[in-house]
Design a protein around this nucleic acid. Structure first.
Lengths: 131, 131, 131, 131
DNA sequence: GTGGTCTAGACCACA
DNA sequence: GTGGTCTAGACCACG
């Protein structure tokens, strides 16, 4: 797993971390049951604060991406990632909606937009995502 | 134009305001050349501070959605909204990428995702968006 | 004399007006002794406020570019424009200084900068400026 | 870095601040990677409001002079200042044009004008500007 | 302790 | 009356 943190980004570090771990799972680089570095370890490796890593882990745990055992450490949820529920679909639509509106205003067609989405999906499945 | 501000939302007020104005333009409820309320007026109507409205307006101006006209006040850019450049497309991809990865992990298929996008686009064009 | 006002500009209207009148004089389109439209006339022609035209005229008068007679109307100073004094040279340096610093930071060389200045001067003298 | 704010000046405080920081960079007093005081610190030192400092910083950030680094705080862009693009050159010409016209009217020759520019450039390079 | 956001209230330049 | 600038003081997210 390669994590790349951009300290100049407007995205908070814990968000970048969370997103990159999710991306690793989606790309099948990390599989259910695989272990992740401990909070301390990852913080040291990335040169960032303990609390920052912890916050990312807590959110991933809360969404069911990972499990945190006091002894076994941190692992990708061995039972796989919980499927999206209705609530998630609604939040996805709420996030997507302003992106679509802005893109539309700027002349990006539905076709171009969906093609971009397909490209991004393709980058996952071509590399053998686990679903 | 109906603006609805959710003071409890995690999104900052000025972002909500910006997004809703963009949405109004996309839905063709507001057309190039149309006027917007003055900073003070809108702030009073929404019961928020004028600086908050101003911040939204400044960002919309900077992106070319609106112009601050010395006599007519604030208007939707009469020449239309500037088309997306390469930089915008890249930023769009950067924003979309984690959404796609997370959705993918949660079992949302490419088909379902693009269908959602199409639905959102449809809500704009069905109502006669200006592009 | 062609005056072009951009109501969307960040420059105040009276400044644009003042600058364009000065440019007309520099390009020798208007000569010492020539008349300018009355405040009312020019305001009507440009579709702007009386006070705005008046403010531009007052500043031009104060700098010695024009004379305002109650009867003869507004004329370009028949004795020519007063030469720059030391105070003007200082203010010019104060204005130029940040432009030079910013340009320098952005990689614009002294040569490119002075070439640009020469070009702008050339646009005046080629057309037969009065000096 | 010495910052001198003139509260009586017509220039807004944030503009003076911005210009002086740019001048410091141009004079090579501050180099890429160097840190700047935090918004609060600088505001306290200068006896002005933190929002005013923040506005200057935001504009410098937007022009690529500085980065807001999550750990190091505010730093001069370590990759150097972005080079001028065509748009900047046009805006420079728009700003310079009325200065040239006015100077010309007041009898300042092309030679004197360019000599002044060279002097201002010289003040930067003599002290070892970074370009 | 940092920057980001929001509020309240003030003065000024512009039109 | 408009937007632009500035101040003072507050809370929150981030690290």
């Amino acid at each position: 797993m390669f994590i790349n943190i951009d300290l100049q980004s407007d995205d908070p570090i814990y968000t970048q971390l969370k997103n990159q771990i999710i991306a690793s799972i989606a790309r099948n680089e990390m599989r259910p049951g695989d272990g992740l570095p401990s909070v301390r370890r990852l913080a040291a490796d990335l040169g960032i604060n303990l609390h920052t890593v912890n916050k990312a882990y807590q959110q991933l745990k809360q969404q069911g991406f990972i499990l945190i055992h006091r002894q076994k450490g941190v692992v990708i949820n061995p039972e796989g990632i919980p499927a999206a529920d209705e609530q998630y679909r609604e939040s996805l639509e709420r996030v997507l909606s302003p992106l679509v509106a802005e893109s539309f205003c700027k002349g990006i067609t539905e076709k171009e937009f969906t093609t971009l989405c397909q490209k991004l999906f393709g980058q996952l499945t071509n590399e053998g995502g686990w679903r």
